[in-house]
């Protein structure tokens, strides 16, 4: 009993239970759900969405929000393809360029928030518009088609069984994020700044540097997600990232992240992404209207914040993480 009550206090237990129940129920209704092809589709969706969710999660960890995640991802995606098509850059160099742009956008966000002291919401709303505007200004809303075959084959290749190669960067990032937030000083600094900025400053943590690093990581992850979407779609769409906003908040919140900052969980956020992907996929399998996906996503955010609120009322004892 003690074991169970301790488990129920961890962030990942609830989402894991929900994931298992969802998989069992959906598999019971439809045998195709766990077919290799379907698993591959699920993993492709999870691979990109997990990066988008982590990109927002790291900002939630410092108690801020980043509305420009999608805009950074889109800008990185079109500069990745644009550099290969227009300048003829080899793919690895173009990837580095895209990631540098992503980090640059993130640093800009962080520095503006830190220097001006204006709320992250307003700053990232402004930069969202700036990044998206640059994206549209460069592409004039036309896609880039010049994706080389090497990138295309990477996007379509399978590693083992139904596991696509695209999942590899995401797995690496997940491990790196977990390691950073749990084991590295900078990760602990990020959480400390998120839970109490003033106290963190007094304890000798450089709050400014921490905020900027968190935003740089966020930009980097958004850029990786943008590059992966290009590899998957095999085209440089200017509209990449337009629909990331809701999703980027849904997964961390389902994973028990506290929006006030200082408390996030990499595992639970990943499970949040898995739940969203499974439910989206289930709606497709049961041929329920795809338009309803938005409604379900919104309802899930509300349900998750409601549950988190209830969980927070229980006395926090040992074993809570």
């Amino acid at each position: 009993m003690i074991q169970i009550s301790r488990l129920s206090r961890t962030d990942w237990f609830g989402p894991l239970l929900a994931t298992l129940i969802a998989i069992t129920v959906i598999q019971g209704f439809n045998d195709n759900f766990l077919s290799p092809f379907n698993i591959q589709i699920l993993l492709l969706a999870i691979a990109v969405n997990a990066l988008v969710a982590f990109s927002q999660m790291i900002i939630i960890a410092i108690g801020q929000m980043n509305l420009s995640v999608g805009a950074i991802g889109g800008l990185a995606a079109i500069s990745f393809v644009g550099a290969m098509e227009v300048w003829g850059l080899p793919a690895p160099l173009a990837v580095i360029l895209a990631l540098v742009i992503g980090v640059g956008c993130g640093v800009l966000n962080g520095a503006l928030i830190r220097i001006t002291g204006i709320s992250a919401f307003v700053i990232t709303l402004a930069t969202l518009s700036i990044f998206k505007g640059i994206n549209l200004g460069i592409t004039e809303a036309q896609p880039f088609y010049g994706v080389p075959d090497s990138v295309k084959s990477f996007g379509a290749a399978l590693l083992v069984g139904p596991i696509p190669w695209l999942a590899v960067p995401t797995v690496l990032v997940t491990v790196a994020m977990w390691f950073m937030l749990r084991r590295m000083p900078v990760g602990r600094f990020i959480l400390a700044v998120g839970s109490n900025e003033h106290a963190a400053g007094l304890s000798g943590i450089s709050v400014g540097a921490t905020v900027i690093i968190a935003h740089a990581v966020s930009g980097l992850l958004a850029a990786i997600a943008g590059v992966l979407v290009v590899a998957r779609l095999q085209i440089g769409q200017p509209s990449i990232g337009d629909d990331w906003l809701i999703l980027s908040f849904a997964a961390p919140v389902i994973g028990g992240a506290i929006l006030a900052g200082g408390h996030v969980s990499v595992t639970a956020t990943l499970l949040g992404v898995v739940i969203v992907a499974i439910i989206t996929q289930a709606l497709v399998l049961f041929s329920i209207d795809p338009f309803l996906v938005q409604v379900v996503l919104g309802a899930m955010i509300l349900a998750a914040v409601g549950l988190n609120k209830l969980r927070a009322r229980q006395p926090v004892g040992k074993g809570s993480a």
Partner: peptide, 15 residues
């Protein structure tokens, strides 16, 4: 296509 960038910059300058 650049108008959106200007509007974003304006919000930034305004704040």
């Amino acid at each position: 296509f650049w108008v959106q960038t200007f509007l974003g910059l304006m919000l930034l300058v305004a704040v």
